[in-house]
Amino acid sequence: MESNRIKNQFKLGEAFRYFFRVFGKKDPSRPDSFNLRMMHGINRISIIMFLFCLVVMLVRALTR
C-alpha cells in the first residue's frame, strides 16, 4: 500500500502528455478559446526559457 502511494506521487505521464500537447498538433476534440491559447503560449515560453537555463547551467558547470 505504501509503495503504491509513493509511486503515484511520482507519476509524470500526464505532465509529459501536456508538454507534447502544448508543442504538438492541435487536438480538435479539445475546447479552443483565446484564454486557452494565451495560456499555452505563455507555457511554451516558460518551458523554452527553463530548458535554455538548464543548458546554460550545464555549460557553466562543465567549463569550470
Rank of each mutant, 00 (worst) to 15 (best):
Q9T: 00
V59A: 09
V22F: 02
N43W: 01
N4G: 04
F16R: 04
R64Y: 05
Y18P: 00
L62E: 10
R21P: 01
C53M: 13
S46M: 13
V55S: 06
A61R: 08
L12G: 08
G13H: 15
N8G: 12
F52R: 04
Y18Q: 09
K26G: 03
S29G: 13
G41M: 07
K25N: 06
R21W: 08
L58E: 09
R60V: 00
L36V: 03
E2K: 13
S46Q: 11
I45D: 00
V56D: 11
G41V: 01
P31L: 11
M57E: 11
I45N: 00
R37S: 11
R21H: 12
T63Q: 14
K11I: 11
K11E: 14
L58N: 10
S3H: 08
F10W: 15
I6M: 13
A15R: 08
L58Y: 12
K7W: 10
I47G: 03
L12R: 07
A61V: 01
I6V: 13
R17W: 08
V56A: 15
R37M: 05
L51R: 05
R44A: 08
G41H: 05
E2C: 07
N43E: 02
K26V: 05
V59E: 06
V55A: 09
S3N: 10
R64F: 07
C53H: 05
V22T: 06
F34I: 14
P28W: 04
E14N: 05
I47T: 11
R64P: 03
F52M: 08
R44F: 01
R5H: 07
H40L: 09
G24P: 03
S33L: 07
S46V: 07
F19D: 02
A61S: 07
